[in-house]
Design a protein around this nucleic acid. Sequence first.
DNA 1: GCGGTGACGGTCG
DNA 2: CCGACCGCCACCG
Length: 109
Amino acid sequence: MAPAGSTYDRIYRAVRRIPSGRVATYGDIAELAGLPGRARQVGYALHALPVGSTVPWHRIINAGGRISLPPGSGGLEQRFRLLKEGVRVDPGGRVNLGEHHFRRRKPPR
DNA sequence: GCGGTGACGGTCG
DNA sequence: CCGACCGCCACCG
């Protein structure tokens, strides 16, 4: 387990806040964890998760609204998990953030 | 302690 | 849309 209060611990806690059927970006998690601008650390922390972890890592995608994980290295599983939760993910791994973002950004207008 | 690495993100051409 | 660069920083050898 990540030491309480450590960077990773804060990241995992933030990830757990994302409800099923919604997605958040790495940058969002960094911000929620109190680490603005450190999206990269979020990716690193998730990569370090042990198999069987209860952290909903699959709800995290990049700012472009796409799965950032190579298909052969977990990307496919992430896509399946999201589909199972009702998130529309096209075959290319793209998600409509306007529809599934856990906290909508300002609608483009 | 140093330097390479990377589930990122914004900007520019 | 795509690739190149740059800033960011915990981890690991």
